[in-house]
């Protein structure tokens, strides 16, 4: 799984032309993944201003506005890819357009039935 983190306040400042360029880059990235047969799933997330967090404590549901944690970089989207090993995943991670501005965390998914 590729978890894409970036600074939302910077992203909010981008011009429409920059947005369009980024979308085009993501289009190409997506096509590359699909062509290689590596794409499983992926999505862009709405900004953290739209986030709501739920916790259940002693049986009571506590709902708070905002993200799970206030951090400098926020989770902005994700891809789930199917690749043979970490090096292959890292190569895709480096190609994520937002890696140039933010960061991409690579995490293996816990496979059901294994280990």
């Amino acid at each position: 799984m590729l978890l894409i983190h970036g600074d939302e306040t910077q992203e909010a400042k981008s011009t429409p032309a920059e947005d369009a360029a980024l979308m085009a880059e993501y289009g190409a990235f997506h096509e590359g993944l699909a062509t290689a047969g590596a794409f499983v799933d992926g999505a862009r997330l709405q900004p953290t201003a739209t986030a709501t967090t739920v916790r259940v404590k002693n049986g009571d549901t506590v709902t708070t506005d905002g993200p799970f944690a206030e951090t400098k970089e926020q989770l902005g989207g994700y891809y789930i890819i199917e690749v043979p090993n970490l090096d292959a995943a890292l190569a895709w991670a480096a190609k994520v357009p937002s890696a140039k501005h933010g960061s991409v965390e690579v995490r293996p998914v816990w496979e059901m039935g294994a280990e």
Partner: peptide, 11 residues
């Protein structure tokens, strides 16, 4: 094992 670090000479 868990992260899938390959047993390979890198690309």
């Amino acid at each position: 094992r868990a992260a899938g670090i390959p047993f390979a000479v890198p690309p």
